[in-house]
């Protein structure tokens, strides 16, 4: 096995040596986001309903001014495993939106109040309009944003992630970016419409800092105090959780069924193992007493 061991050792040395090359170099700058604790982490993670409802409020009052969420429909807000607003609440908040419908019998488009079956309306009619209104930048659709963003974990972290089930790269990154605005380092001049963000790859981001302490009013608890701190950090966490739900609305069902399936298959595998042993014990070399 000498040749094999030498090869293996050489390969290990190469991998460890080159893995030390900072991954950020490839990504073109941008600090790795910290790992935040989320209620939806791990095999039994679930969404925090109150957090999703607060997150919706942040989305509605801040994000939706520029970002579309065209794949999410109002009715989703009342479905199981989501923010679980009541159906009456969903009808009311859908009716808050003006939806373009038509054409009517006169052949004209018209606006009507939203219905639960409608998708969130887009803030701009098309990409060109969105760019024109945002200094050339296109605010991406947020429907699957939490799954569409990630950052490189690197060796050997990506292997451990299989066991720890870490898959919150998207939300970690989104929350970090929303709270990662800083003054640019000395000597860097930003063009108009550019902002400096610690976590953005390349550090330059078109979106300005939009979350400030006290900006959004959270529902009050029985003691008259807000149900969660009205801070930029909390807003960022809440809206990120909301985006994770929006990107994967059946996550709770998935993890719940997953647990049942894996328990079932493990038990079945156990039974099959003993059945197999019993059948193979008919062969002389597997008969009891020979080993």
């Amino acid at each position: 096995m000498n040749l094999f061991r030498t090869t293996l050792a050489a390969c290990a040395a190469i991998i460890i040596g080159t893995a030390a090359i900072p991954a950020a170099q490839a990504a073109g700058g941008g600090t790795k986001p910290p790992e935040y604790p989320w209620s939806f982490d791990g095999p039994f993670g679930t969404f925090d309903r109150a957090q999703l409802q607060r997150g919706y409020k942040v989305f509605r009052e801040v994000c939706s001014a520029c970002h579309a969420m065209g794949l999410v429909r109002f009715r989703n807000l009342s479905q199981k495993g989501g923010p679980e607003f009541t159906e009456a609440q969903v009808r009311a908040l859908a009716a808050d939106f003006k939806i373009m419908d038509g054409p009517n019998e006169q052949g004209e488009m018209f606006e009507r109040p939203g219905r639960p079956s409608d998708a969130f309306p887009k803030p701009f009619p098309n990409e060109q309009a969105a760019r024109a209104a945002n200094g050339g930048a296109y605010p991406p659709d947020m429907s699957v944003l939490a799954k569409a963003r990630n950052y490189e974990r690197g060796f050997p972290l990506f292997l451990f992630d299989i066991l720890t089930q870490y898959q919150e790269g998207g939300p970690d990154y989104i929350k970090a970016v929303m709270t990662g605005y800083e003054d640019p380092p000395a000597g860097t001049t930003l063009q108009p419409g550019q902002n400096w963000n610690k976590y953005m790859p390349g550090n330059i981001i078109a979106m300005p800092n939009v979350l400030n302490d006290g900006q959004i009013e959270y529902p009050k608890g029985p003691d008259g105090k807000p149900s969660a701190p009205e801070t930029a950090k909390q807003y960022a966490a809440d809206v990120t959780a909301f985006l994770v739900w929006a990107a994967e609305p059946h996550m709770e069902q998935r993890k719940r069924i997953g647990f049942q399936v894996i328990v079932f298959l493990t038990l079945f595998a156990g039974l099959l193992y003993f059945t197999k042993k019993r059948i193979w014990s008919r062969l002389p070399e597997h008969a009891p007493g020979t080993h």
Partner: peptide, 8 residues
Amino acid sequence: MAEAKATQ
């Protein structure tokens, strides 16, 4: 084929 019926 090697099946030993006696052992079962």
